[in-house]
């Protein structure tokens, strides 16, 4: 997979640099390297979630190349390509949360969980943004638009402990997991291969070529495939991308 990414990147960079050299001022090109900080979360938090014990963003790099066509001195329209990771891990306390777990004996079972849930999300995407640009002054620009992202590699897994599962429904057989017991789960195969949503960013030019960007990407379609019913609520990726860029 790394090979594919590198190849795509190299090709795109080459293309952009080549066209940048022969373009007039109507086109602008930039390349960015950054990190995503955020979460893949139900919105709003459902009643099943009683407490967020811990949240930690995981190292989520991004590389991005954009081309912008300037319409006039203030407005422009642009697109690009971004390869990025969206990752985080959480530890939450839940009550009566529908899930599917694997017990000590490798037994898989479904039911309503009350207790702790540890989740790791680690998704790699190739994203294509389409956005409008507004130039406030020579240093500050805003962008806003849509993105579509294709999942290259995804995982959504973790474990439950310190609680109990009620098999099938809240009155079913009670299966106890102590703090030391782990019931694992893995819904990696259920992640939607397409993610799309809104994005909005602010950019500050430190010098003629160096630019700092902050950009929020808000996933609008569900993280999981629509036929995945194990978890009773929908989850969305919401990440803030902080990047340093070079404007050609």
């Amino acid at each position: 997979m790394k090979k594919i990414i590198t190849t795509i990147l190299a090709l795109t960079v080459g293309l952009f640099v080549a066209s940048a050299q022969e373009s007039d001022r109507k086109w602008e090109f930039d390349a960015r390297v950054g990190v995503n900080i955020g979460g893949t979360s139900p919105l709003p938090l459902p009643r099943e979630i009683r407490k967020i014990e811990a949240y930690s963003p995981q190292f989520s790099p991004s590389v991005e190349i954009n081309a912008t066509r300037l319409i006039n001195s203030r407005w422009g329209i642009g697109s690009g390509i971004r390869i990025e990771k969206k990752a985080m891990s959480t530890h939450a306390q839940v009550k009566d949360y529908r899930t599917e777990i694997i017990g000590e004996g490798g037994n898989k079972l479904r039911g309503n969980w009350t207790g702790d849930v540890h989740t790791n999300v680690e998704n790699w995407y190739i994203s294509i943004p389409v956005q409008a640009l507004y130039r406030l002054n020579s240093r500050i620009e805003f962008t806003g638009g849509l993105f579509a992202a294709y999942l290259i590699d995804g995982s959504f897994d973790g474990y439950v402990n310190d609680g109990y599962l009620r098999k099938d429904n809240p009155t079913g057989d009670k299966i106890v997991f102590d703090k030391k017991d782990k019931g694992t789960y893995d819904f990696s195969n259920e992640i939607n291969s397409l993610s799309w949503g809104l994005q909005a960013g602010a950019h500050w030019s430190a010098t003629q070529h160096i630019r700092l960007s902050a950009q929020l990407t808000w996933g609008v379609n569900e993280l999981f495939k629509s036929n995945f019913k194990t978890i009773s609520f929908s989850m969305y990726p919401i990440y803030l991308n902080i990047a340093a860029g070079y404007r050609f």
Binding site: L45, R47, R50, K95, N112, T171
Partner: peptide, 15 residues
């Protein structure tokens, strides 16, 4: 605002 913990739902268990 959307990240707030909601009020607890009434218990669903009947033991």
């Amino acid at each position: 605002p959307t990240a707030c913990i909601k009020d607890e739902a009434p218990n669903a268990e009947a033991d």
